[in-house]
Write a protein that binds this DNA or RNA. Structure first.
Length: 418
RNA sequence: GCGACUGUCGCCUAGUGGUCAGGGCCCCUGAUUGUGGUUCAGGUUAUCGUGGGUUCGAAUCCCAUCAGUCGCCCCA
């Protein structure tokens, strides 16, 4: 019986990581330039945090959490990171920092689900959150940040869908009206929708069942849904956001059926999908969550943010190759080989050497397998004359030169040492 | 939680009841003890996912189980 990684988890091998590192590096660069700062919170939190923060009626909390008991404490592997970031924001009094507080994070999340294409039990998210501002321009800025990031990475086939789900006040009214309207149709609707009718009727609109869709597109219901049922404040906010997106030339689609699965969203919700993915086509999702900070015991603080799935993102962009090895040192003297290698590395180049003590010809063959661009040969005769042979592997040409001259040349081309 | 399909060396794969399995790639050794890539010769790696059954005989047929993939659901 061979050991394998647990169901729904994957090893990231060196050849995969080149693309991941490219994504992470681009993220740090893009967010850094936009003045976001990185935050790292624990991979597990009190179960309570997610129950209160993510929402008791959500699937995530109901059936997807990895929860375990340690002594009296119930802990849960984080299924998402907004709740964790909000907890840290409150705990460290970050509301005393200059507003807005702009944070980003990246790391693994855990959800106990049946794995399939684009869905695993341990997956990775990159997310951004802005605390302390309630303006439409902060919504726009956050969405633009995501779009800029995707553009930089060259992600194809993207679509931005956006909706206004209202605030806690107007959503309640809408909810009751919707329930009144849908109640007579319950018999015709699927089991899931009947459950959602009680727990979270807004999510019924997102149902993929054809019969249910048919009901929701009936003239009477469609007409109701077509009206904006949010309050004037929410509507104004949303309309201003749409204008800002237009002004920034960001194409979007208004999707009145779009409802996020997490309870904490208010007003703006959005989702970025790609038609190059399978059934799990959402790359990025987010929105405004003005009530969450207060709900978790902090000061009443508006916030907006999003999270994207790194695995899905990586599957969409061109595969990056690992940087090639620059130098390979060939020598029959271990001490000289080690010293040379270190000196090359100190000047900012990658260098490797043989550790097995094999013959020079074999060492050269190894350099070739490792795809080294240059081989530095330092054998007995070179040592006597304090020289070195530099061989260019692509064309086989080589040059003998004094060691000092070699290092001078290296220094000239080398990046500034850290 | 439900459904469909798949499961042979590290990777790709031949083999659809009759020698406990063949090939390609990779890896290692040698030809080539101060010069790699090509070529040539050799070598290592598989109790055919696991367990049971049918049969004189099973990688091959049947059942179960596990795992993977895709879809439902849900979401990033």
């Amino acid at each position: 019986m061979t050991l394998t990684s647990p169901k729904g988890t994957h090893d990231l091998l060196p050849e995969d990581l080149a693309t991941w590192q490219f994504v992470e590096q681009t993220a740090r660069e893009t967010f850094g330039r936009a003045n976001y700062q990185e935050i790292r919170t624990p991979m597990f939190e009190s179960t309570d945090l997610f129950e209160r923060g993510v929402g008791e009626s959500t699937d995530i909390v109901n059936k997807e959490m990895y929860t375990f008991l340690k002594g009296e404490r119930s802990l849960t592997l984080r299924p998402e990171n907004t709740a964790g970031v909000v907890r840290a924001y409150i705990q460290h009094g970050m509301d005393r920092r200059p507003k807005p507080v702009k944070l980003f994070y990246m790391g693994p999340m855990f959800r106990y689900e049946r794995p399939q294409a684009g869905r695993q039990r341990q997956f990775h998210q990159i997310g951004a959150e802005v605390f302390g501002v309630d303006t439409p321009q902060s919504d726009a800025a956050v969405i633009l940040l995501a779009m800029t990031f995707f553009t930089k990475l060259g992600v194809p086939g993207l679509k931005l869908e956006i909706n206004n789900v209202g605030c806690f006040d107007c959503r309640g009214d809408f909810r009751e009206q919707l329930k009144a309207l849908l109640a007579p149709h319950l018999m015709a609707l699927c089991g899931d929708c009947n459950k959602r009718f009680e727990t979270n009727p807004l999510r019924m609109l997102d149902c993929k069942n054809e019969t249910c869709k048919a009901v929701y597109t009936q003239p009477e219901i469609a007409a109701f849904l077509n009206q904006d049922h949010t309050c004037t404040v929410c509507q104004t906010h949303f309309n201003q956001l749409l204008e800002l997106l237009d002004a920034a030339h960001v194409p979007f689609e208004r999707n009145k059926m779009l409802v996020r699965g997490l309870d904490y969203y208010t007003r703006t919700v959005f989702e970025i999908t790609s038609n190059h993915l399978g059934a799990q086509n959402a790359v990025c999702g987010g929105g405004r969550y003005n009530g969450l900070v207060k709900m978790l015991g902090g000061p009443d603080t508006p916030a907006v943010g999003w999270a994207l799935g790194v695995e899905r993102l990586v599957s969409l962009i061109a595969k990056q190759t690992q940087p090639a090895l620059e130098y390979f040192v060939v020598s029959d003297s271990p001490s000289h080989a080690l010293a040379l290698c270190q000196q090359i590395q100190a000047r900012g180049f990658s260098a490797d050497l043989d550790l097995t003590g094999k013959a020079l010809g074999k060492q050269l063959a190894q350099a070739n397998k490792l795809n080294a661009r240059y081989v530095v040969i330092c054998g007995e005769s070179e040592r006597e004359s304090h020289s070195i042979v530099v061989k260019t592997m692509t064309d086989g040409s080589q040059e003998s030169l004094p060691q000092e001259l070699f290092f001078e040349r290296l220094t000239l081309r080398a990046p500034v040492p850290a």
